[in-house]
């Protein structure tokens, strides 16, 4: 085990995978000299000359070239500087990467990772703070992966690079510098496997991305109220480990689903619906969702406080659930 930051964990995984497999290469804006705005590709250019491509600002071209290179046998790691810029490459993601294998009856393969720095970081307002996980969950053929800890980031990233199919890899900017213990060496985590981050008996909190840490902190505080909270981290939203989530909810009888994305039509809503459908008879209280309101991310720090959910929201929701 080694303590490292979230961005360092991804960088380590990328480094290891590039060392292991010559077909892995990096393509994106400002990825070489600058190491990307969040330093995930820092040092890659020196370690792997000729295998990192700094591009013009051309997201459709970048992702589309990634698709073509993947189809021709490579394993591109595509960095979009901010998730928001994926809107310029939606055709390449949704119509090409996701559908190519199916549309060709299994002839094509598109092993590529699209890295998506997302959510609130510094105050960057509406076009540099989105999450949009559910957009990609909605598209069959894509894997949607959302690590919450440095260890998960490393393990999931290595699996994503090795995956024979496209992976949308969500990296929440606000946890890039969060630190944690990371297993050294060839550590991989299967995509589609949720992780019970804390065991408990009274209520299940299904938490996505940074909400995992906030829920764990909330769970500690809720101990004082005598509540024993289980925290489940789906880790990948598509495929979704419905079994692990539902097993937990059947045990506790209560479910709170939380993410930082908009609650309305967001990932948490899909999970809540699945819980309702599969665990109705076991529920002692209505399933609750926590997320951001359905507004663009504002700039002002005072307004942002009303958008991004915090551990207080988790505590409040658990209390409501327990009181129901």
């Amino acid at each position: 085990m080694k303590t490292m930051a979230f961005n360092e964990a991804i960088r380590t995984a990328l480094h290891e995978e590039m060392q292991r497999d010559e077909s892995v290469f990096v393509i994106g804006e400002d990825v070489a000299t600058h190491g990307g705005p969040y330093k995930v590709t820092d040092g890659i250019a020196e370690a792997f000359p000729g295998r990192i491509f700094e591009t013009p600002i051309a997201e459709a071209g970048i992702v589309g070239i990634g698709v073509g290179a993947a189809m021709a046998g490579m394993r591109p790691v595509v960095e979009l500087m901010y998730l928001d810029f994926v809107t310029c490459a939606m055709d390449e993601v949704v119509n090409q990467a996701a559908k190519m294998r199916y549309m060709t009856g299994g002839q094509a393969r598109v092993p590529m990772v699209i890295r998506l720095p997302c959510g609130i970081g510094r105050l960057l307002a509406a076009q540099h703070s989105q999450i949009l996980e559910s957009w990609f969950m909605h598209v069959p053929g894509l894997q949607v992966v959302v690590p919450s800890t440095p260890a998960d980031a490393k393990g999931l990233f290595k699996t994503a690079v090795r995956s024979p199919d496209p992976v949308m890899f969500f990296e929440y900017k606000r946890i890039y510098t969060s630190k944690g213990e990371v297993p050294e060496g060839d550590y991989t985590i299967p995509i589609g496997q949720a992780d019970v981050k804390r065991e408990g008996e009274d209520a299940t909190v299904v938490a996505i991305g940074p909400m995992v840490q906030k829920s764990l902190e909330a769970a500690v505080l809720l101990e004082d109220d005598g509540y024993d909270i289980e925290v489940v981290d789906p880790r990948s939203l598509s495929p979704l480990d419905v079994d692990t989530i539902c097993e937990s909810v059947r045990k506790t009888g209560r479910a709170i689903v939380c993410g930082e994305d908009s609650t309305f039509a967001g990932a948490a809503s899909e999970i809540a619906a699945m819980i309702g459908e599969n665990c109705f008879g076991d529920l002692k209280a209505p399933v609750r969702r926590i997320g951001s309101p359905h507004v663009p991310m504002p700039f002002s720090s005072e307004l942002v406080k009303h958008v991004v959910p915090e551990k207080s929201h988790v505590i409040e929701a658990v209390n409501q659930s327990m009181a129901a």
């Binding site: 290469f25 000729g50 295998r51 491509f53 459709a60 071209g61 992702v63 589309g64 070239i65 990634g66 698709v67 073509g68 290179a69 993947a70 189809m71 021709a72 046998g73 490579m74 591109p76 055709d91 390449e92 119509n95 090409q96 190519m100 549309m103 060709t104 094509a108």
Partner: peptide, 23 residues
């Protein structure tokens, strides 16, 4: 490398295959 129904979408795909050739 596929025939695509979205107009122009194969252009970056073919370009990517060319990048693979070079790499």
């Amino acid at each position: 490398l596929g025939e695509s129904g979205i107009v122009a979408s194969s252009v970056p795909v073919a370009t990517g295959a060319a990048l693979a050739s070079k790499l």
